[in-house]
Design a protein around this nucleic acid. Structure first.
Lengths: 114, 114
DNA sequence: TTCATCTACAACCATTTGGTTGTACGTTAG
DNA sequence: CTAACGTACAACCAAATGGTTGTAGATGAA
């Protein structure tokens, strides 16, 4: 979660994500687009990879970068949960679950984070 | 944008946001909840404030922290745009705008960021 | 007034970040 | 084979981060 948002908190990295939307791009092709060294872009891609936002696929001597379609969805879901709390939906849901002694699996109210 | 995601990229800060959902909390009240100094929490609140995620209101000698309901919406919208690009919606929209010589204000295709 | 509380802010420190350069290795092209 | 390309990775550096302590200013309570 920390890594996800941290990866998104950089203009270059968000731009890399946008560029990889249309299709796979090699790291060196990406590096041409930015006023920085190849190694720097390589590091940005590594950050995105550790956050699960992109995956790399080897093709010959090139390393093709592709976005993970589900990753942004996960980030959005995290914000949705935050927004739900905002609107009090979580509280009401928790209260309903408390009254109904049914299957209460997940805990959405306590602890700083999972 | 950078500041927004960076503010969200920390467990303590996300937790502060959740705690301030129900109502305003003073900084010292917040500080009691975490195993760190008052000044550290103060800094976290400052980061959230610079990102526009919370606002502070003075009440006597206390400084009450409150979440900005629209802020998470803004972050979600940013992710929505990213997700739209994923799905190619932005591209099709841009193509439509290109064919229609009408009011083409925003540029969504070039540059690293706004 | 005096004291305790809440806040603000500066100074400091260790670690991380974002960038650089340089070197080494696998792969493709001539 | 040799040269060029794409990548990986280490070492290094300046700046930012996340934490600390200490000091000082407002405000509320005794």
């Amino acid at each position: 979660m920390d890594r996800l948002f941290h990866a998104l908190a950089d203009t270059t990295r968000r731009d890399i994500l946008r560029r990889c939307v249309r299709g796979e791009l090699s790291v060196s092709r990406l590096a041409e687009a930015y006023p920085m060294s190849f190694a720097a872009v390589q590091k940005h891609v590594a950050v995105l990879e550790r956050a699960g936002l992109v995956t790399k696929r080897r093709s010959g001597r090139e390393q093709l970068v592709r976005t993970d379609p589900d990753a942004v969805g996960r980030a959005r879901q995290a914000l949705d949960e935050l927004e739900s709390a905002w609107r009090g939906r979580v509280d009401r849901m928790a209260r309903l679950l408390a009254e109904d002694p049914g299957t209460d699996e997940n805990d959405t109210t306590e602890g700083p984070e999972r």
